[in-house]
Simulated scan of single mutants.
Amino acid sequence: MSASSSKGKGKELATASPLPGPSSGSANPAASLSALWAYLLPALNHIVKSPTNTPDKAPAIDIGFYAGIHTACYNYFTSQSETKSSAQARTAEPSGTDLYEQLDKYYIDAAREVILGAPQDDSTLIHYIVPCFNRFSAGAMSVNRLLNYINRHYVRRAQDEDKGWLRLNDVLESVAKTITADDSREKISERLKEKRTDELKQWGYKPDGSGATMASAEACAEAASPPDRIISVSSLAHRRFRTEVFEPLLAVPVVKGTKAKNKKIPKATKTTGIPLPKGRLARAVKELLESKGGDEEERVRLVRDLAAALRLVGVRPDHPLRKRLDRFLQNV
């Protein structure tokens, strides 16, 4: 393909019309989960997966389709609540659980498509992963706005019921050490808030406003949580990008030829000179940082975007690869 035709195609992608909604019919998209999902899926695929010339901005859908999805989600949640008796409401899962789990499965599949398309050559891995993540994340943020009713109706309720990213049991042990029998409920609640703030500080939050905002830090903390925690729709997508893409790429390969009873990786020492094996992403970063020549501005951009991606998907700040990327950026 010639350069001119490539530019023309890129321009065409960037100015493509918003995705129209399905033709109106008698089917009610809020009648069942399968009906609602069939209604949502074209919009999700368009927003998350469609090719675009602007990977930091997800493709749009028609305003009528957008409004229709809001209405369908509202009607689906409402109908679920109304069909449950008071006894069922106390024992059954909250309305929207099935839709939330279906969305989680969707993000698993979407993230796996990314890892399946990854190049085998470490030298091109970061050039592939960074734009893929930027595109995936832009889609996730757009879907978060589109399906915000899930956040307001389902996620917020789950968090109020101690099912969110940080649960009482997670902090009870450390908080209990500072609680006395004379402490009031308000004082205990204040200690719990302090613990939550301490957790957010690990993700860059600073109460004086000099660091990341609380919302930004909490999004990272949500993505870092285990898969059983109920989190916002955007963090749900980022968490799956971590579990399905980054974690496999960060995994250290098992050393071949070792017996089952002795699978420990040998430590590198000055005397043995045995190098520690590295995961694919660590090898790719090493090659990128140590490469000579090339476009320095592009290299810095890739490192900065990769560092931001690892943070956003919930890779811990003390991870060796995150620390190496941060050190590089501090010296730029």
Rank of each mutant, 00 (worst) to 15 (best):
D122M: 12
H153G: 08
N148E: 10
K201N: 03
M1W: 06
H238K: 08
Q159W: 05
K177L: 04
A92G: 08
P55K: 01
P253D: 15
A215K: 09
A14H: 05
R299E: 00
D56P: 01
N144I: 00
R191M: 14
L325W: 00
L200V: 11
C132T: 04
F328H: 04
F65V: 11
Y205E: 02
M141F: 13
K201Y: 01
R240M: 15
L44W: 04
S210F: 12
E290A: 04
A87R: 15
P253V: 10
E12C: 02
D121F: 12
Q102F: 09
R167W: 01
G117Q: 02
E12V: 03
N53R: 02
R112A: 07
A27Y: 07
V171K: 11
L192W: 12
I69G: 15
Y76F: 09
N151K: 07
L321W: 14
S17E: 09
L99A: 04
S34K: 09
T91A: 07
G10V: 13
K263D: 11
T269G: 12
E290F: 09
R90L: 06
Q202D: 10
Q159C: 00
W203H: 04
K84P: 03
G273T: 07
K201G: 05
E101H: 10
T178L: 10
G10D: 12
A307M: 02
F136I: 07
D228E: 02
N148G: 15
A260D: 04
E101M: 12
R283P: 03
V143L: 00
E218S: 14
T258M: 15
N28A: 13
D318G: 06
P119M: 13
E82R: 13
A87C: 14
S291Q: 13
G209Q: 08
F328R: 00
D182L: 12
I61D: 05
V175M: 07
S17L: 13
L321R: 15
A111M: 04
A14T: 05
F328E: 01
S210W: 07
Q120L: 15
C220W: 13
T71E: 01
T15H: 09
W165H: 10
T91K: 10
G117N: 04
E199F: 11
E247W: 03
L44F: 00
A16T: 00
P266M: 14
F241R: 11
K256M: 15
A260Y: 05
G10Y: 11
K84Y: 05
N169E: 05
P253C: 07
Y149A: 15
P248F: 11
K9G: 03
D318P: 03
A38Q: 10
A268F: 10
N28H: 05
L250S: 06
R240C: 09
P227A: 08
A309H: 04
I265T: 10
N151Q: 03
S4M: 14
P275T: 08
V332R: 00
E297T: 00
S50R: 15
Y205N: 03
A224N: 11
R301T: 02
S142W: 08
D182P: 08
T258F: 14
L44C: 03
N144S: 00
K7N: 06
E186P: 05
K323M: 12
A67K: 13
P277A: 06
T54L: 01
N144C: 00
